[in-house]
Design a protein around this nucleic acid. Sequence first.
DNA 1: GGTGATTTGTGCGTATGTATT
DNA 2: TAATACATACGCACAAATCAC
Lengths: 263, 263
Amino acid sequence: MPPTRTPMYRRIATDLRAKIHAGELRPGGRLPTEPELAEQYGVSRNTVRLALGQLTNEGMITATQGRGTFVREHVVLTTHASTFEAPNRPTSPTDAYVSEVMKAGRKPSQDFEMRIVEATSEVAERLRIDEGDAVVLRRCLRRVDGEGSSIQDTYYPMDLAQEHSLLMGPKDIPQGTTRYLADGGHSQVGYLDELTTRMPTPDEARFFEVPAGVPVLVHVRTGYTTTRPVRVTVTVHAGDRNRLVYELDDLQAVYDGERESEA
Amino acid sequence: MPPTRTPMYRRIATDLRAKIHAGELRPGGRLPTEPELAEQYGVSRNTVRLALGQLTNEGMITATQGRGTFVREHVVLTTHASTFEAPNRPTSPTDAYVSEVMKAGRKPSQDFEMRIVEATSEVAERLRIDEGDAVVLRRCLRRVDGEGSSIQDTYYPMDLAQEHSLLMGPKDIPQGTTRYLADGGHSQVGYLDELTTRMPTPDEARFFEVPAGVPVLVHVRTGYTTTRPVRVTVTVHAGDRNRLVYELDDLQAVYDGERESEA
DNA sequence: GGTGATTTGTGCGTATGTATT
DNA sequence: TAATACATACGCACAAATCAC
């Protein structure tokens, strides 16, 4: 451990980080200007910028040209991943999303788009088709209070989409795609969720309007009927604005427990 | 949109990013040196460093003093979140983790630690106790092939821990804590998982040995008996080395479907 | 509505330290 | 040891966005 031989810009970053955690600099509050910090710490403006860059990359602060540098504050939107598609509910994931957001007192909005594309290896593997095969892509861009919140891409095998013509349209399906497919004989009885995280691509960063230092949460859901995968949904969430929740119970045990406590 | 007025360092970043995606620069491969890039693009070395900094923050490249700058390559380790604690399985999460890693042909190792700490508001809310109340913290640092992979902190309410003395020891519990608690009359029948992502703290970055630009996946699991929450587990995964998987079925529908296909 | 001051963004040059080869 | 390569740090200048007057 090098106690004395720590670079200045890191010491400054550590100091500012501590001040933020201690509440000396409050969320939404403004930091001293770069020249001010430079003088306070007795370093050049460049060195201050290195320190601020560290904190920016940690998602702790955000700087705006002409305004200043501020401590980030973020409100999180919760998504209930395990109840979204309860088989017996008539609500679509879309509606579930909208109501979820409104329940939080925020204003949701979404754009739809439909395209036919070639399956990437990721999609092909999960749908058990060949890479390059045509698939129907339904994209949904979701915003909360005007800010980009998530990008959802759902891929359907071509044969399924042709059977279910609404999938081929660039519009929302009122009763929800899961229900729509179920009514057509392709009832989704299970799914596999894969969760990873990474930094946003430049495109994603633009949509989410995140300055840097905010990762994305990638949620890949593969939906199955009893015989085959019927869709792959890739949802990219702006990391600091979203929380994904799974609620899982051993229903039998819960029931037994309730019976016991009644007795 | 400013097509021509894009800063040089971003254009360079975009160019290098494209070359990496196109396979012109392969994972593990080395980029030209900073002075070389500076000459190629006709800019100063400082500007090249700004561009490389962008890619570093996106987790695409990593630079090492004296060696050079390389395209990152990462292998992912999959964790099956929904099967880890299937009520009827005798395996502990720990053992499940170890076997999972070994199945992937890698070498797992873990360190245990036990402390009594004051509950933070996050932990207190989930355990339905007061902030500052004493809780037992069992920490497990997990490594794969020597590299930090995840940090797992499990918090137990004090009364529960006193009833179950093994929890108070700094050692692994062979049959698994879930089973151990169940045997003592506190059978976990359900859990709530919360998933978010953020950039690592400096401490986490040191443990994971990630150079920067790699986010962490935060997994908070609150386990319940039929009457109360019995534990909160916070697992922090190195983002680019881990994938979390949930497998969920409507068992009744699956059974019905199988019966149909038999008929 | 406009002007100037403030503040961050972009980019240059230079020098020296430190780890690797 | 020497050369190479990235890390840290200084200085300067001007651009662009914002804000107060």
